[in-house]
Design a protein around this nucleic acid. Structure first.
Lengths: 197, 197
DNA sequence: CGTACTTTTGAATCGCATCAAATCTGGTGG
DNA sequence: CCACCAGATTTGATGCGATTCAAAAGTACG
């Protein structure tokens, strides 16, 4: 996750991969369509979006560097849309090739490790969303994502708010009160520093 | 997930597995301890619990039939406690044996499928927790977990509330209003039936 | 048959969503 | 290079829905 995810792909897969260039607004795949390839975002940003009954959009996954809908490759149809939010370079590996490559021991081991990491990350995300207040969610995010008390936020605050399950207004207010309380310090280029443990 | 998860274990692993009988309140493993085995709950109930900074308990995973902390087997230490909530029978497979067994092609394929399913489930759970109102979360749960408009709830409403990220009071009230509105019908033995789509 | 836990309802409170609007910022094209 | 535009950031006012605290009734299990 920290390192480029595509590096776990074995040479033969990288050899047969197509590199897609998709501009903002493009649809990588649509809800209901059949998975034909495994996608790996190398630059830009892609989001898995599901439109709720009431019309609200829910972001299921946000990929800036990593695989997209990797748990659904063996499914009959995608259950969400994959939208390019920021012009992206995306590797596309044919589904059958990918599955055949999994017969290689080293690759399968690496792949299991990757999916495990994704699962732990998702469970952590659930844990965070179970917290009741905005402040607790921010602290939880810090505790789990920061490297040595310093968080390098790789997104806008608005996107962060969405990930925390908050409106951006609520996040702004919470951050402000935490800054004023001295619990947090904001540094340029989207960095935050925690004060106490 | 629907079928007994342990059935994906190959014969040689089932042969070397120990069957643990743990009574309510027992600790399967503690936060900070090193993973020594892969556990699979066969009956009873086991919960992964993390105590938040404020002292509140957060349920990370709830296992009544399936593997526990399966994504952390290759980790140096558990980051949560595994507590037996209801007297349980748990299969224990030594860590090294499990990892060696993954060299078998069929088992690894099955295992990847299992972890994929877990990942999809966890992402769905996140999606649900991003919904703002109790009613929406209940409906989402119905839509994703019900079989043909009928939901067989395999837990108490209190546990359900925790899974939905609500207090039990909020869930009771929401259910009542949905019953009164005719959106839902309650049947004996924890079954619910949706009215419209 | 008692005890622990779930289920259920009530009242008061609080935090977040919502709606509104102004400012700031980065990137685009003329 | 500057004007412009879309999106991000920020602040304010208001209301709703869920939490919280409290308490009673139902239920399962040893």
């Amino acid at each position: 996750m920290r390192l480029d995810a595509h590096s776990i792909l074995p040479p033969e897969l990288r050899a047969c991969a197509t590199e897609l260039q998709l501009s903002k607004g493009a649809l990588l795949f649509a809800q209901g369509s059949k998975p034909k390839a495994m996608y790996c975002v190398r630059s830009g940003e892609d989001r898995l979006i599901r439109t709720a009954v009431n019309g609200a959009e829910i972001v299921l996954q946000r990929a800036t560097s990593g695989f997209v809908a990797e748990a659904s490759l063996d499914h009959a149809a995608y259950h969400c849309d994959a939208v390019v939010v920021k012009t992206a370079t995306i590797l596309s590996v044919p589904r059958s090739r990918f599955q055949r490559a999994l017969s290689d021991a080293a690759f399968r081991e690496a792949w299991i490790g990757y999916v495990n990491a994704q699962l732990r990350h998702s469970r952590l995300q659930c844990e965070r969303l179970l917290l009741r207040t905005a402040r607790e969610r921010v602290l939880h995010f810090m505790e789990t994502e920061a490297r040595g008390r310093v968080l390098k936020l790789g997104m806008t605050k608005k996107a962060w708010a969405a990930e925390l399950g908050l409106t951006h207004e609520a996040l702004y207010r919470t951050l402000r009160s935490m800054l004023e309380a001295g619990e947090l310090a904001e540094r340029p280029s989207g960095c935050f520093r925690m004060k106490s443990v």
